[in-house]
Design a protein around this nucleic acid. Structure first.
Length: 581
DNA sequence: TGCGGCTATTG
DNA sequence: CACAATAGCCGCAG
C-alpha cells in the first residue's frame, strides 16, 4: 500500500476540482504530475493508486497524452471523471487522424510537421542538432520533441514521467487557448472537454466490452453454418457442403468459385442472365429467372457469418468472462464519429439476441430519432426547419410544406444532406430550396467550400480537412467526379460531424451521471446507446438517459426550439428492442 | 506481399 | 446504392 504522496503534493499546490493536472504514468516505474505550480515524480510499481487517491479527494481535470493513459487506469480499476485528452483536442483543432506526441507538440508550437525529427539512426541532421544538448531535456534546441523521448523514452524513469507530465500540462494550455480562439465556433471549448471525456469512455468500452451470451451466439451461428467444426478438415467439408448447395442448381461438372464475383457473373451469363455486377439487390431483381440465384443469396449470408461473424470471431473477441471486446476510438479521421474494431458497429441484426444482460442486470437501450435533420435545423439556424423539428415526426410537417408524401419528403431531406442529385428526390429537392433556404444554403456552402479544397469546421469546432491530403479523394484529384465527390463529402461532414458531437455529449453525460447507479455504457452506435445496469435500477437508468439527453441538448444548443427525441426501453436482450425506423 | 475492387453489414 | 465505418476475399502488380 503506497501512501498518497501525490495527493499531498497536489493539495499543497492548491489543486481543486476541474483544475488541469498533467499526468504520465508507467506500470513498474511510477507517476509524474504537473500543474502551473510545479511538478512531481513518484516511483512505484502501481502508480494508479496515487491517481485514485487524488481523484477521490480533488477531482482535477487530468491532462493525458492519449487514451492509452486512461486505458492503463481503467484496467487497474481506476475511473477518473474528467480529462483533457491531447489527442482528442488535437484532432478537433487540426483535423485528420494522425496525432503522435511529436506532431501534436509541433502543431501547438507552430513548427512544420515535416521537420519533426525521426528516430532513424541515419538521420545525421538530427544527430547534429542534438550535439551538445542535454539528452535529459525532452525538447530539442529547435523546439521539437526529442525523437527518443517521443518514441517511448518518456516511460523510463520517474523523473522522465515528471517532465512528460509537465509537457502535457503546457501543451494543454496551448490547446485550450486554441479552442478559445475560434470566434465563429463558441462551442469549441465545450467540444474539447466532451471529446476528452469520450476518450475516457472509449477506454472503458475497450477494457470492459459488450456482454454476449456465448451459448446463444453459438446457436445462432450454428443455424447458418452448422455446428463448430472439430478440425480444419471438417471445416473444409462444411464449406464444400455449403458450396454444393448452390452448385447443385447448375449443370454438373461446372467449376465455379462462388467467392469470385467475376466467375459468378460468367456463370449467370451462361444461364442467360446478364448483370452489371453481382450485388445482392441486383441479384434479387433476377431471382425468379433461375433457382441458383436464390441459393446464391442464401449462400452469401451464411458465408458472411462463416468468415466474419462465426466461431473464429467469437474465439478472437469473446472473453471467458462473456465480454466481447474491440478497440474503440473516439473520432474517426473524417467527421468525428466513434469507431470500433471487432465488428462491433456492423454486427448482423441476426446476432443481436446473443447480446444479453448479465445475471441481475438489464439493458437500457436508447436511440435518437431523426438526429441528422434535427442537427441540420440547429447548425444552420433555419427557423422554418427548426419549427418542423418541434414535432415528434419531423418529416410530417416537411411533407405538408412541400406538398409531397412523407416518404418523398424523407428521401429529399436525406438526399440534400448526402448530396444526391438524381432519382426520386430530385424534384422535391428543388422545393426544399424554396421552403428551407437557410438550411439548404448551409449545405450548399459546405459543398462549394469542400469542392474548392477549403477546410470546413463543424458546429462544435472540429476541423474537417479538405486540402490536398484530405481523407477523401483517394483517386486523382482532377479525375471526373472527384470535385463532386469532395462536395458530397463536405456537405455530409458538417451534419454527420455535428451529430457525432451531440451524441458524444449525450454519452459522456450519461457516463458522468450514472456512476451512483452502477450503470455502464457498453455500446455506442452513432445514434444509439446500450447501457448495462443492475436490474433494480432499470427504470432509474432509463430516466437518467432521458434527462441526460435534455442536459446535453441544453449545453449543446441552449434555447433551441429543436427537439431531440430518444426511444428508450428497458430490455434483457438487444433484440428485444423494437426495430429502428 | 501489398493494394485496389467488390461485397456485406451497421448507422 | 447518395454519407460514414470495419472486415474479408479475389485478382493483379511488383
Amino acid at each position: 500500500m503506497e501512501s498518497p504522496r501525490l495527493l499531498d503534493a497536489l493539495r499543497g499546490a492548491g489543486v481543486g476540482p476541474g483544475d488541469l493536472v498533467g499526468l504520465a504514468l508507467e506500470a513498474g516505474v511510477g507517476v509524474g504530475a504537473a500543474t502551473a505550480g510545479g511538478s512531481w515524480a513518484l516511483a512505484g510499481a502501481e502508480p494508479w493508486a496515487q491517481v485514485a487517491a487524488v481523484e477521490e479527494e480533488l477531482q482535477p481535470r487530468w491532462v493525458m497524452w492519449s487514451a492509452e493513459t486512461a486505458l492503463v487506469l481503467v484496467r487497474a480499476g481506476v475511473r477518473v471523471a474528467r480529462s483533457w485528452d491531447l489527442v482528442a483536442v488535437h484532432r478537433l483543432l487540426a483535423g485528420g487522424w494522425r496525432a503522435e506526441p511529436a506532431r501534436m507538440w509541433a502543431a501547438g508550437h507552430g513548427l512544420d510537421p515535416d521537420s519533426i525529427p525521426s528516430t532513424k539512426p541515419a538521420d545525421l541532421w538530427s544527430s547534429f542538432e542534438d550535439e551538445g544538448a542535454d539528452a535529459e531535456d525532452p525538447v530539442r534546441p529547435d523546439g521539437h520533441l526529442r525523437a527518443e523521448w517521443a518514441a517511448g523514452g518518456w516511460r523510463e524513469t520517474p523523473q522522465r514521467l515528471r517532465r512528460w507530465a509537465a509537457l502535457a500540462f503546457d501543451l494543454a494550455g496551448i490547446q485550450a487557448a486554441g479552442v478559445d480562439a475560434i470566434p465563429e465556433r463558441p462551442m469549441a471549448p465545450a467540444t474539447a472537454r466532451s471529446e476528452s471525456a469520450a476518450e475516457l469512455l472509449c477506454a472503458e468500452l475497450t477494457a470492459e466490452g459488450l456482454p454476449v451470451d456465448r451459448a446463444v451466439a453459438e446457436g445462432i451461428i450454428a443455424g447458418f453454418v452448422g455446428a463448430r467444426p472439430r478440425d480444419d478438415a471438417e471445416a473444409a467439408a462444411r464449406r464444400a457442403e455449403r458450396d454444393a448447395e448452390v452448385l447443385r442448381h447448375v449443370a454438373p461438372g461446372i467449376e465455379v468459385d462462388l467467392r469470385s464475383n467475376g466467375q459468378v457473373k460468367v456463370l449467370l451469363g451462361r444461364l442467360g442472365i446478364e448483370v452489371a455486377d453481382t450485388r445482392a439487390w441486383r441479384l434479387r431483381e433476377v431471382q425468379d429467372r433461375h433457382p441458383v440465384v436464390g441459393a446464391l443469396l442464401a449462400w452469401r449470408k451464411a458465408e458472411r457469418i462463416a468468415t466474419t461473424y462465426g466461431y473464429g470471431w467469437l474465439d478472437e473477441h469473446l472473453g471467458d468472462d462473456g465480454r466481447l471486446r474491440g478497440a474503440w476510438s473516439g473520432a474517426d479521421g473524417a467527421a468525428g464519429r466513434m469507431t470500433a474494431t471487432a465488428g462491433l458497429h456492423s454486427m448482423p441484426a441476426d446476432l443481436r439476441p446473443a447480446v444479453a444482460a448479465e445475471a441481475g442486470h438489464v439493458f437500457v437501450r436508447a436511440d435518437l430519432g431523426q438526429i441528422e435533420p434535427r442537427v441540420l435545423a440547429v447548425v444552420s439556424g433555419d427557423a422554418a426547419l427548426a419549427d418542423a423539428a418541434r414535432q415528434d415526426d419531423l418529416y410530417a410537417p416537411v411533407a405538408a410544406q412541400l406538398g409531397v408524401d412523407r416518404a418523398t419528403a424523407k428521401v429529399a431531406v436525406l438526399g440534400a444532406m448526402y448530396g444526391q442529385t438524381t432519382g426520386r428526390g430530385a424534384q422535391a429537392l428543388r422545393r426544399l430550396d424554396v421552403a428551407y433556404p437557410v438550411a439548404m444554403g448551409y449545405l450548399t456552402a459546405a459543398a462549394r467550400s469542400a469542392e474548392a479544397g477549403h477546410d470546413l469546421r463543424t458546429y462544435g469546432g472540429r476541423l474537417v480537412r479538405m486540402g490536398p491530403d484530405a481523407p477523401v479523394p483517394a483517386a486523382a484529384p482532377e479525375a471526373p467526379g472527384a470535385v463532386a465527390a469532395r462536395g458530397r463529402y463536405g456537405r455530409n461532414a458538417v451534419i454527420q460531424g455535428a451529430a457525432a458531437e451531440l451524441f458524444k455529449m449525450w454519452a459522456v453525460t450519461v457516463r458522468a451521471r450514472s456512476v451512483g447507479l452502477g450503470a455502464r455504457i457498453v455500446l455506442c452506435l452513432h445514434d444509439e446507446l446500450l447501457v448495462h445496469t443492475p436490474e433494480a435500477h432499470g427504470e432509474a437508468t432509463a430516466d437518467l438517459v432521458a434527462r441526460s439527453l435534455d442536459e446535453a441538448v441544453h449545453r449543446w444548443a441552449a434555447g433551441t426550439p429543436v427537439r431531440f427525441l430518444a426511444d428508450i426501453a428497458v430490455i434483457r436482450r438487444w433484440s428485444d428492442a423494437k426495430g429502428t425506423e
